[in-house]
């Protein structure tokens, strides 16, 4: 436990001492929250478009923010693998489980902090715009987002183990774009139908956003199926990430 705590603490400090993590993990999602609220205010009520209304936007922006935690997890691991720091730790009594938990725990905590800040900002926006958004609903939405937080951390662990320091950020940017677009953060995926909706439904990001929005609205009938799908994805992604990390750790030792 001591090794996990020491390594987690190091990874947490590495992220919170990087100014870029504030810009991408907090600043950018919050700026998008404000911009999209302004866009929503500019859309005439007759259009019947509610995707950017704060009760829908809050969950979407929270999912969007989580993709940046994935990016920072991935960048941290790929950078560690490229340098000699991990060589020292591989020669220490740390086991592969210590490394995996040491990377996952602090990033999961960052996800929770990020969601809380996003929801506080959303709540303030709801008070300003007069759209009803309950604190209890946001708490439920936070709970519904926890599997997504772990899944995004798992994606970061997986990509960081698979890709090198140079390739990792670029590839993560593609995933961020796909996740926010096909996750229905910026458009109402359910109103599209056809192949696009099928693709959205196959991927986990749509279900993350859907579960978060439905939980905030106390719509458990919509939330539960999406939550179960997200949980299944979370388990699969974490299993793949752990397996790949262990394989890479053994390969690095050769």
């Amino acid at each position: 436990m001591s090794a996990i705590a020491a390594f987690s603490s190091r990874n947490f400090k590495e992220v919170i001492r990087d100014p870029l993590s504030y810009i991408f993990c907090l600043g950018f999602p919050l700026v998008m929250l404000v911009i999209m609220t302004l866009v929503n205010e500019s859309i005439p009520a007759q259009a019947g478009m509610t995707i950017f209304r704060i009760d829908n936007l809050a969950g979407g922006i929270a999912v969007f923010g989580l993709t940046f935690v994935m990016l920072f997890t991935c960048m941290g691991i790929s950078k560690d693998r490229a340098g000699a720091f991990l060589t020292r730790l591989y020669a220490s009594p740390m086991r592969s489980a210590d490394f995996i938990l040491g990377y996952t725990a602090p990033m999961f905590l960052l996800c929770v902090i990020q969601i809380v800040i996003t929801f506080i900002a959303s709540f303030i926006v709801s008070l300003i715009t007069g759209v009803e958004l309950s604190a209890a609903g946001l708490l439920l939405s936070l709970a519904a987002l926890l599997p997504s937080a772990l899944m995004m951390t798992g994606f970061g662990l997986l990509f960081g183990s698979l890709f090198g320091e140079k390739a990792a950020p670029g590839l993560c940017s593609i995933v961020i774009s796909l996740a926010s677009f096909l996750g229905g953060v910026w458009f109402d995926a359910d109103s599209t139908g056809g192949v696009l909706l099928d693709i959205c439904r196959v991927l986990p990001f749509y279900h993350s956003t859907r579960a978060a929005r439905a939980a905030a609205a106390f719509d458990f009938e919509t939330c539960l199926p999406s939550l179960l799908i997200t949980l299944a994805y979370m388990a699969a992604v974490m299993a793949a990430a752990i397996a790949v990390f262990r394989i890479k750790m053994r390969a690095d030792a050769e």
Binding site: A3, A6, R10, E14, F85
Partner: peptide
């Protein structure tokens, strides 16, 4: 092989924790 964003003291304390 040091943790770049940690202080000198934190680097040493981290290793103590790992051991």
């Amino acid at each position: 092989a040091v943790a770049e964003k940690l202080t000198v003291r934190e680097n040493l304390e981290m290793i103590c924790g790992i051991y």
